[in-house]
Amino acid sequence: PEDLERKVRELQKNGVSPEQIEKILRRDGVDEREVQELVKKVS
């Protein structure tokens, strides 16, 4: 979803590592495939 992507970009802009971003997304209940997609987009 659009807002998730925005969140991921925000986190990355704040210097959060892709690994941390993955953890955060998983903790928020984002589905694994979605997590991978989002992280791939920003890394």
Rank of each mutant, 00 (worst) to 15 (best):
V30E: 03
L38A: 07
K13P: 00
K13R: 13
R27L: 10
V39H: 02
L38N: 01
L11R: 00
G15T: 01
K13H: 07
I21H: 00
Q20G: 07
V16Q: 05
L25R: 00
R26H: 04
R6F: 10
E32T: 04
E10H: 09
I21K: 00
L25M: 04
D3M: 10
V30A: 07
R27E: 13
E2H: 12
K7C: 10
E5A: 11
V16M: 14
V16Y: 15
V42W: 09
G29Q: 02
V35C: 04
E34D: 10
D31K: 05
D31Y: 03
V8R: 02
K23E: 14
E32H: 04
N14W: 11
R33V: 09
L38G: 01
E19C: 12
L25W: 00
E37M: 09
K23F: 11
V30W: 14
Q36H: 12
I24T: 03
D3C: 14
R26Q: 05
D28K: 12
G15N: 04
R27S: 10
K23C: 15
L25D: 00
N14T: 07
E19S: 11
V39P: 01
D28G: 09
K41Q: 08
L11H: 01
L11F: 05
I24L: 10
E10D: 09
E22I: 15
R9C: 15
K13N: 08
V39G: 02
R27C: 12
R33E: 09
Q12I: 15
D3P: 06
E2A: 13
K41E: 05
V42Y: 11
K23M: 13
E32Q: 06
Q36L: 08
V30Q: 03
E34L: 15
L38V: 10
I21Y: 01
V35T: 03
N14G: 07
E34G: 04
S17I: 03
G29L: 03
L25F: 02
D28Y: 15
Q36A: 09
G29D: 02
G15R: 04
I24A: 03
E32V: 06
N14D: 06
V8Y: 07
R33Y: 07
Q12A: 15
P1Y: 14
Q20P: 00
K23H: 09
E5L: 15
Q12G: 04
E34P: 01
R33T: 10
L11Q: 00
E37L: 08
E34C: 14
Q20V: 09
K41D: 04
L4S: 02
L11K: 00
V30D: 02
P18D: 08
K7N: 02
V30Y: 15
V42Q: 04
E32P: 11
G15A: 02
E32M: 07
D3G: 09
V39S: 02
L4M: 06
D31C: 06
R6D: 07
I24M: 11
E22M: 15
R9V: 04
V16W: 13
L11N: 00
I24S: 02
D28R: 13
D3Y: 12
E2W: 12
V8D: 00
P1A: 11
R33N: 10
K40S: 11
P1D: 10
Q20E: 14
D31T: 10
L11A: 01
E37N: 10
K23I: 14
G15H: 04
V35D: 01
E2D: 12
P18R: 14
Q12L: 15
I24D: 01
K40T: 09
L25G: 00
R6K: 11
R27T: 07
Q12N: 07
P1M: 14
P1R: 14
G15I: 00
E5M: 13
V30S: 02
E2N: 12
E19G: 07
K41V: 06
